[in-house]
Write a protein that binds this DNA or RNA. Structure first.
Ligand SMILES: [Zn+2]
Ligand SMILES: [Zn+2]
Ligand SMILES: [Zn+2]
Ligand SMILES: [Zn+2]
Lengths: 127, 127
DNA sequence: TTACATAATGTTATATTATAACAATTTAAT
DNA sequence: ATTAAATTGTTATAATATAACATTATGTAA
């Protein structure tokens, strides 16, 4: 549990409080009053936060959410559900899923050190 | 098996022949001699080809590969392995994996209509 | 085969996402 | 105190993707 730098903390707090994934330039707009003025300052903080597992990138949406799943060790194994109507994103925390994927071997017997899984469908509200 | 339009066929052929995933602007450069001059022409063909399942988008790389897996019905269920050194991408065709993920239900019992899974590791050559 | 709807194309402009390059400052460990 | 590593600040630019509008081609049904 390392301490975050000033920019990292500001940006993490913002993402952590957001009910939905946040995009980089939306983050930028929200932190300009706190002195973070340039895209690069945002992207650098995002890179670090992803690296240490505090946030995840939703690749299909180019957006970021805070990790609320202590079992996904440093972002090596991530799974999300995404509603195709309202765009609600939830991190999936399933021991059996992560066990299955962590142990998955392909045809050549290769095991992978990392994965990202994105499920799509309709959330409760949108069904 | 529908017939492709002119632009769609040109762009599919290029991607299909490529040994590696192709990015949109690399595609554009490669088809300019064939009269496709604008990004939008490329993106429109890519959108359609993805929609009908002839190609897939590798979300973490913003790149496209041809589908060589008849069992992934119209791109609703895709899985790839990605080498983090040489960026080689392979479509994974595993009946047990697709069965597991297609039947996966989250905590609320929700089933998903679609998923995309990207595994990361080192390919044979790079290990 | 005309009429109509749908799909695809062509074109210009612009929006969105992300990194390069370089200088300065802060932090943490000797 | 010295030094290395990490972080910050700043400007410019690269890479990825869509909006808006006009035109042309294709398929379907009276
Ligand atoms: Zn997580
Ligand atoms: Zn929803
Ligand atoms: Zn496929
Ligand atoms: Zn490799």
């Amino acid at each position: 549990m390392q301490t975050l730098s000033k920019n990292q903390q500001i940006i993490f707090d913002l993402i952590d409080k957001s009910p939905e994934p946040m995009k980089a330039y939306s983050i930028l707009h929200n932190v300009q009053k706190k002195g973070i003025k340039a895209p690069l300052q945002v992207y650098r903080a995002l890179d670090k936060l992803v690296e240490i597992g505090k946030i995840h990138k939703i690749e299909s949406r180019n957006a970021f959410i805070a990790c609320h799943n202590s079992s996904c060790q440093v972002s090596k194994a991530t799974a999300f559900s995404i509603c195709e109507i309202c765009e609600k994103v939830t991190e999936i925390s399933s021991a059996s899923l992560s066990k299955y994927l962590t142990n998955f071997k392909d045809k050549d017997g290769m095991k992978y050190s990392k994965y990202n899984l994105e499920f799509f469908g309709l959330c409760k509200k949108c069904r």
